[in-house]
Design a binder for these strands. Structure first.
Lengths: 199, 199
DNA sequence: ATCTAAGATTGAACTGCGTTCATTGAGGTA
DNA sequence: TACCTCAATGAACGCAGTTCAATCTTAGAT
């Protein structure tokens, strides 16, 4: 069917994503403006809405890429990690931290995008989240071989959330004294202490 | 000097805080609108700006109250907690969770308010934060009597951040299966495991 | 190749927001 | 009472996201 039209449509879609990605990375989600976007893409403002439902949809497309890059970074860290499961957890958590620090604005956009209340998270989000959770639950199962499955699932989620919290508040107050090294130290302290006495 | 004027000024200030507090609690920070506020307070929109610099200032005034209530709840939980320091940590963390759950929108507003980049957090925030940190570091020092002070400080911050992360992501996905009980379980699991093998 | 209907493209206009400011009105003082 | 100062007012401004009637392009049928 529509070859020429669909092609342009796809081209515009990609172009908008690239521009939005750069804008968010450089100046944050709040710097994403429809008129600027259209000017830079060389199209009319209305054209954006032929390709995306609204700017939130565009942001979600950017977030999908960001999340995927994040997952890849964590996977790479895991691939180069030592055998010891606790060290694997630490290496992955610090990879998460470093990604957040080096892609601060893009990483923030992952959570700052407003979802309609009650609406489920998009599929790619759940998928990528599942990937991250498996990276965590595998070493965790080695550390805690005698824990029931449901408890391991809770621990997995809890550990992810803990690391996320440490990174979130640490980077928030990055100007107020929590250095990168201290965030890494906090992560290692918590995870080592956490796994020090498995049952 | 200005008795009548200053009085009205203070009255309007208080009235606006009360209305904003209720609006945020019921419908979230994004529901706070200058025109609605003025209509409900029976004043002109401009009057708001005689009393607060902008809506962010008003939000900060509401947040100061919210944070104070939060601190009081945690303090009360600690006062009624058993002697055991680990149990104290758990009780406080769960009090934090319950406050966040029961004051979800107000609690979110604590973190969703936009601060100018590079600007320091307000004084009451640092003060209240210090109070919370002391509640944590005291029992922590009992659990880990041999750790150096700087490490205890990092652990304190790390534990707070961890609990915050668990509550944040847990409540975020409250519709997606993380029940209140599971959040409490995650908090207890992490803290118990964390303090299981002090050095 | 031509025609035509479907739909893509356009940008001015609409809506809703925070904030400002010239004007109006009230309060305290001489 | 007269006057000056400053608070109060709400229309207007600037700036967003989004819409839509008008225009143009395209793809398929003839």
């Amino acid at each position: 069917m529509a070859t020429k039209t669909e092609l342009r449509r796809q081209e515009l879609r990609d172009k908008l994503i690239v521009i939005a990605e750069r804008t968010i990375a450089q100046n944050g989600l709040s710097a994403l403006r429809a008129r600027d976007l259209a000017k830079e893409a060389g199209c009319a403002v209305g054209a954006i809405y032929n390709v995306f439902g609204d700017l939130t949809d565009l942001t979600l497309a950017v977030n999908a890429r960001t999340f995927h890059r994040l997952g890849a970074d964590v996977a790479e860290a895991l691939a180069n990690a030592p055998e010891d499961p606790v060290e694997q957890l630490i290496v992955m958590a610090q990879a998460y931290h470093h990604f957040a620090a080096q892609n601060h604005q893009s990483w923030r956009a992952l959570f700052d995008v407003e979802r309609a209340p009650g609406e489920a998270a998009p599929d790619w989000y759940l998928q990528e989240m599942g990937r991250l959770f498996r990276y965590i639950s595998d070493p965790l199962a080695v550390v805690f071989p005698n824990r029931p499955a449901d408890e391991l699932a809770l621990l997995t989620r809890a550990l992810f959330s803990s690391v996320h919290g440490i990174v979130l508040l640490g980077l928030d107050e990055a100007s107020a004294g929590v250095s990168t090294e201290n965030i890494d130290r906090m992560i290692a302290l918590v995870l080592r202490q956490f796994a020090a006495n498995p049952k």
